[in-house]
Simulated assay, not measured.
Amino acid sequence: MAGESQRVVVITGASDGIGAEMARQLAATHGAGVALVLAAPLQAVADACTALGAQAVAVPTDVSIQIQCRRLVIGAVERFGRIDVLVNNAGRSAHALFEEVEDLDWYEELMRVNLWGAVWCTQAALPHLKRTRGSIVAVSSLAGLIGVPGRTAYSATKFAMTGFFEALRAELRGAGVSVTTAYPGVVATQIRYRGFNAAGETAGASGLIEDGAMSVEECARLIVDGMNRRQREVVMTGKGKLGRFLKLLAPGLIEKMALAALKQDVRPH
């Protein structure tokens, strides 16, 4: 069981990248004041957090399977007695021109991971979060605010995620549960290399220009800060903040900016 002053945080997609770094930062900052339930196939990140003074446990979880999302939440409550924060971070990327996609099955799989995994975890955790007047964090993407060419599947999943959590925030307004949606841009992780390509296979390369990518450490810090402040949204970059307004005022310009972010060899002809 967690102590009365200990915050219990569940993080999906915590094996590496943003989720793992959030866990390490929370452990480094709060030490014994935080208990971390990490949806991760291996114990390594949990061990690193334990070494920093936190309580941490790794729970192998495939968020594309509903029962595993339920088990993650049930296990957290059985182990620590409550949940204070749910971070829906698990996700997979994709890059493909729609006209080059022959089999759309992987579009459905991407939606199961990026949207349904977050929905299922949130549904399971919500009664516990209402009891603690806790927080939900949804890690979306700038591709969930602005449609990005070559990323029809990914943008679709992230737009859906954005809409779901925006509506949920309004529903929970009187329940004391905050909902923070984060919109990272290009972050220096392996997510784009592990995403789907047009054939539904692992891409092995990024279709985006990676120069100037935000560090994982900075991205995680901004999300954790937004979570602690119970902010509605965390838009990471100046371009992202500008882009959401230009989308309304000059949509054609935004399309040109989005195309310019793609590598030359993956741009539509």
Rank of each mutant, 00 (worst) to 15 (best):
A76V: 03
R112Y: 10
Y107I: 13
D103N: 08
E100L: 12
A118Q: 09
G117R: 06
R79V: 04
I83F: 07
Q68Y: 00
T122V: 06
D103T: 01
D103S: 00
G117K: 02
V77N: 06
L72C: 01
I67F: 14
N88M: 04
E108Y: 10
R71V: 07
E109P: 05
G117Y: 04
L104G: 09
R70T: 14
E78Q: 11
A90Y: 00
R82S: 05
V113Q: 11
D84M: 08
D105G: 15
V85T: 12
S93F: 09
R92D: 06
A94R: 07
E108R: 15
V77L: 05
E102W: 10
L115F: 07
V113S: 12
E99T: 00
A94I: 04
N89C: 03
R92S: 11
V77H: 01
L110H: 05
G75Q: 10
I74Q: 15
R92E: 05
V73S: 06
R70M: 08
V85I: 06
R79L: 13
D84S: 04
Y107C: 15
R112C: 11
F98Y: 13
A94T: 12
G91C: 02
V119L: 12
L110N: 08
R71N: 15
E78D: 14
E109C: 09
L110M: 14
G81A: 07
E100V: 01
L72I: 00
S93M: 06
V119W: 12
I67H: 15
R92L: 15
N88W: 03
C69P: 08
S93E: 12
G75F: 00
N89R: 02
R79A: 12
R112D: 14
G75S: 14
D103L: 02
V77T: 10
R92A: 10
A96D: 02
N89L: 01
G91I: 00
R71G: 13
T122F: 09
R82H: 07
N89Q: 03
T122H: 11
L104W: 09
L104F: 15
N88E: 06
D105P: 11
G117I: 00
S93G: 13
R92N: 13
N114D: 02
A118L: 04
G75E: 09
A90D: 03
V85P: 07
V73G: 06
D105A: 15
V85Y: 02
D84H: 11
R79T: 14
H95K: 08
G91T: 02
E102K: 15
F98K: 07
W106F: 12
